Amino acid sequence: MSAALVVLSVSVGAVPIPPGDVLAVVAHHLLGTTAVPDPITDQIVWDIRLPRALLGVLVGGSLAVAGTALQAMVRNPLADPYVLGVSSGASLAAVAVLLSGVAVGGAPVQIAAFLGALAALLAVSLLAGARGTLPPLRLVLAGVALSYALSGTTSYLIFASDDPQAAQSVLFWLLGSLGPARWESLGVPAAALVLGCGWLLARAPALDAMVLGDEPAATLGFAAGRLRRELLVVSSLVTGVVVAVSGGIGFVGLMIPHLVRLLTGPTHARLLPLATVVGAGYLVAVDVVARTVNAPVEVPLGVVTSVLGAPVFLWLLRSRMRADR
């Protein structure tokens, strides 16, 4: 499904390209056995649209993985990098570096975004913690409050910038975009996704136990405190790398794990791979919508995902509040 969506994404645009020509260009570059339709089509497909579609795969899969990890860590389906303020922390740190003139996706931006995400998640944990526990509702409320504070600080940095053009570019990037995608920008997000998802799959039994609570996890031989610290680092790393290359894209990490969980159940050995695939396909499809719904003007990805994700969040919140009564 994700592969078909990638081909569709590459085909759709200001210059429509038949799927057969897309496959011909890819086969030419990978196998060297098929002639390209023409140089312009080759450039559009290989240099512009295919890296963008593949970045969408990596970003969507990474956000779904990070959301799955955070939901297991706090035992709350309302958790995701956006709601808990992790994306806002990464965005604030990345914007501070970007306004100094560093290119999107560069190593300094990625490092800053990772540290910002980690700091935000630690701050939320400290604010919501009570006697060594993380009450779900307090965690969500602390995350929302911190997210607003960090977003306000980010807006101030953009407003106070001495370079209006740079500030406008950063503002558009902050709302989420795959436009800056290039082949050289795919390596780090791909490595973060593979390492993060691989580590989580290896720890799938521990994640299953953690969802039951700290005491049941300890009874089964898993150290919940240590696992929670590891999840902090992994989710912050994956989220920080994603924010550095695509800006702030909300609700993917909330929606996808929950919807996939309805199909697979709570077992993380099944949940993680399918959530990654569905998240990848979802963001590629959202990017197609963002590029075409108001063509030729591109709508930021974060706008589309928020419109789609906010009703799901409210539904989950209402369901959670009923369950807690």
Rank of each mutant, 00 (worst) to 15 (best):
T133M: 12
G129D: 05
A142P: 04
V140K: 11
A120Y: 10
T133Q: 15
V124L: 09
F114C: 04
L137R: 13
L141A: 03
P136N: 06
L139R: 03
A120M: 12
T133H: 12
G116T: 10
R138A: 00
A130S: 09
F114D: 02
R131C: 00
P135M: 14
L127Q: 10
L141N: 03
S125M: 14
L141C: 04
R138E: 03
A130I: 07
L141S: 03
L118A: 10
G143W: 13
A120E: 13
P136L: 11
G129R: 15
L137A: 12
T133W: 03
A130V: 13
L126V: 13
F114Q: 02
R131L: 09
A123K: 11
F114S: 01
V124P: 01
L126K: 14
A128H: 02
L141M: 15
G143L: 13
L139H: 02
L127F: 06
G143M: 12
L115P: 00
P136Y: 05
P136W: 09
V140A: 05
A123F: 07
A142Y: 04
A128K: 06
L115A: 12
L139E: 00
V140P: 04
L139W: 06
L115E: 01
L139K: 04
A119F: 11
A130L: 14
F114H: 04
A117L: 07
P135A: 06
L122S: 08
G132R: 15
V124Y: 06
A128F: 08
A120V: 08
S125Y: 08
G116K: 11
V124E: 04
L137V: 15
T133I: 15
L134D: 03
A123Y: 13
L139G: 03
R138N: 03
L127R: 10
P136T: 08
L134V: 10
V124F: 04
A119S: 14
L127P: 03
A117I: 12
T133E: 15
L127N: 01
P136V: 14
L134R: 05
